[in-house]
């Protein structure tokens, strides 16, 4: 198996007058797991299906490794895919499903490879079962085995965990990540769940309305979102306005320094700017003359943290307090002071 990269070169996909993907250029490094993340209808699944060959670009070029695969049907590409619904063939056993893609091999080798792949996902002994006799999690493993057994240059996942319950979802997420690392696979992974994306990705590509909103590592996207959209999509963020002056953000009485690198990358000028405030960016303290005064509007105890909505001169802010054991009742007066991270300027578009 040789993992290959994937390159999109100014790719468009139109359906009549509607545009699903516009002028998309991206590169997926060999051996990395890249997540396409975004709200429904943002073009992420369409992009994945263009890598698979299930849809063709209206314009532009798709390359796998160095080979131009634009226009090639799926069966002539070195990719395989795990579908959201798993798409296991209901009339074939687990073994037959997994061996399906190996029809070019001699029988003995085919069976051996299928058995090996089934064992790899922990389903040894299930070869003769029909998909309808398996649980949802087991069906998912079969789907992964069926895709893996081809040793594809690129492995595609289309929201593979969305039909599983929360506990199983986290477990399968970790297994997919471990498998990818162990085998050095190139993986393109579509999801709309930001927590899933943060947990498994080398790179995340956030898409919105057919375009890339921002691409980067999970840490970059969370700590330095380019826009209010990315900030709000990657976790919670309160939008607000602030005044930027010589690298310092002024939010009412608060002054927050901005990392110099971020300032240069974003090209922010002194003056009024949009900012995103993470829920953990402001510490909730007893009222004092320091900090931003506020009043608790609503509070909820969530176990690990307490969640508050606090009325301030910047607007109503959604904040969390990891230290709270009993949440403050509504009406309590508080002062808010910045922690070390979580308040950043964002571009307005």
């Amino acid at each position: 198996m040789t993992a290959s990269g994937v390159t999109f070169d100014h790719v468009w996909r139109r359906y009549g007058p509607a545009i699903a993907v516009q002028d998309l250029s991206l590169h997926i490094q060999p051996g990395t797991l890249v997540t396409l993340l975004g709200p429904s209808g943002c073009g992420k699944t369409t992009s994945l299906r263009m890598i698979a060959g299930l849809e063709q670009p209206s314009e532009g070029q798709v390359r796998i490794g160095t080979k131009d695969v634009t226009g090639l049907p799926p069966d002539q590409r070195d990719v395989s895919m795990v579908f959201q619904s798993y798409a296991l063939f209901p009339h074939m056993s687990v073994g037959q499903n997994v061996a399906y893609g190996l029809s070019a091999l001699p029988r003995a080798e085919r069976d051996a490879r299928a058995r090996e792949a089934i064992a790899q996902v922990g389903l040894a002994g299930f070869e003769a079962r029909l998909p309808s006799q398996l649980s949802g999690g087991q069906q998912q493993r079969v789907a992964v085995a069926r895709a893996l057994v081809l040793r594809p240059a690129v492995l595609l996942f289309d929201e593979p965990l969305s039909n599983l319950d929360a506990r199983l979802r986290r477990h399968m997420r970790d297994e997919i990540r471990a498998l990818q690392q162990r085998l050095g696979l190139t993986v393109a992974y579509v999801t709309h769940d930001q927590a899933e994306a943060l947990a498994i990705s080398d790179q995340i590509i956030v898409m919105n309305q057919g375009r890339i909103a921002q691409a980067g590592t999970p840490g970059q996207l969370y700590d330095e979102p380019d826009t209010a959209f990315v900030a709000a999509f990657m976790g919670e963020a309160n939008p607000a306005r602030a005044r930027l002056q010589s690298g310092i953000l002024h939010l009412g009485p608060l002054a927050v320094p901005v990392p110099p690198g971020l300032l240069a990358r974003g090209g922010f000028q002194d003056g009024d700017v949009d900012v995103a405030i993470r829920p953990e960016a402001l510490r909730i303290e007893p009222p004092s003359e320091h900090g931003l005064p506020g009043t608790i509007l609503r509070s909820a105890f969530m176990g690990a943290v307490a969640e508050y909505t606090v009325a301030t001169t910047l607007g109503d802010l959604f904040l969390t307090d990891p230290a709270a054991t009993a949440p403050l009742p509504p009406g309590t007066a508080v002062s808010l002071n910045p922690t070390s991270r979580g308040i950043v300027p964002v571009r307005s578009t």
Binding site: P73, A87, L88, Y100, R146
Partner: peptide, 12 residues
């Protein structure tokens, strides 16, 4: 999707 799956598994 079943047919799409077959296509991605090298079936013409």
């Amino acid at each position: 999707t079943l047919e799409e799956a077959a296509r991605t598994l090298r079936a013409d």
